[in-house]
């Protein structure tokens, strides 16, 4: 397929490098396990050998919900965990509407129709790493943390996680602690860790000279980006939008970038914070 390519890949700009190697698959994936927590957070683990083999932290899949016309469109979900040994990936989401309710009602032996892995994920920047996650935005950061833990000592890195309350946050804390990380926490109601928002925790880790990776509600990420720009720290953000295709065809997943619109599905979902337009 790529017989004409003679380019030195080190000369290609990062975006085209990703596009160059990117290949997505459509897979019918048997569900291995599905769990639902007290706070309506659902974790589905599916067998997806092709996707699991090639997925990178920060990438996503498009999930077909049911097989009828309502809901019509696939839903984008970031890859929460990827187990290459067992050829499985996990998706984590909160039940918020019709689509997520239908997915939550599935059982082992059902299967999910997935397209992925899609988009441009996190790229490993200067160490140490600081992962800042809020609410369900923590989901893709776990895949990133697993890769970090596999690469180097977990001691150097910071994990800052926030959610509304202990019930929502505690399962995440257990997960990241399981990888060997020390986790710092913030909750809106003060039921676990710092009483306040997760970007507040950034103050406690400065001076810090590494890379910030963040995903969460937009106002939270805006706060993180603001602090990073004050401290001149490189920051990568994972964005979420509505999408019809996830393939770069519908052009529906637009956000305002530094110079004009960018498309979250193909140019993202992970962007250097400097490439996105913020109201700082």
């Amino acid at each position: 397929m790529f017989s004409v390519v003679k380019t030195d890949i080190r000369q290609i700009e990062p975006y085209s490098l990703v596009a160059f190697f990117m290949s997505e698959f459509q897979e019918n994936c048997p569900i291995e396990t599905i769990t639902r927590s007290a706070s309506d957070v659902v974790c589905i683990t599916v067998l997806a050998s092709q996707i699991a083999r090639t997925a990178c932290p920060g990438q996503f899949v498009m999930v077909r919900v049911g097989n009828g016309y309502d809901p019509l469109l696939r839903r984008p979900f970031s890859i929460h965990a990827c187990d290459q040994k067992n050829n499985s990936i996990s998706l984590l989401f909160k039940v918020v509407g019709q689509g997520t309710a239908m997915l939550a009602a599935l059982a082992p032996d059902d299967s999910l129709d997935l397209i992925g892995p899609l988009g441009k994920g996190f790229s490993f920047g200067n160490t140490p790493a600081c992962l800042v996650g809020g609410g369900m935005g923590i989901a893709p950061l776990y895949f990133l943390a697993s890769e970090l833990a596999a690469r180097e000592s977990t001691n150097d890195h910071h994990i800052l996680l926030g959610a509304r309350n202990r019930e929502e946050l505690a399962p995440f804390v257990d997960q990241f602690s399981g990888l060997g990380f020390a986790v710092q926490t913030a909750t809106d109601d003060g039921s676990l860790g710092h009483h306040g928002f997760v970007p507040d925790l950034l103050d406690a880790i400065t001076p810090f000279a590494g890379t910030i990776y963040t995903c969460g509600p937009h106002p939270m990420m805006e706060n993180v980006v603001r602090k990073c720009s004050q401290l001149s720290l490189p920051c990568q953000v994972s964005l979420e939008t509505h999408m019809a295709c996830g393939l770069g065809a519908c052009l529906g997943c637009t956000v305002a970038g530094k110079d004009g619109y960018v498309h979250v599905c193909k140019q993202g979902p992970v962007f250097p914070a400097s490439e996105v337009k913020w109201t700082l």
């Binding site: 519908c250 529906g252 619109y261």
Partner: peptide, 20 residues
């Protein structure tokens, strides 16, 4: 053409609206 500001698409019953 740069296209319209977001949001550009929304799902509706058995369909979708777009203003790309």
């Amino acid at each position: 053409r740069p296209g319209n500001p977001p949001p550009r698409i929304v799902e509706t019953a058995c369909g979708m609206l777009n203003a790309i």
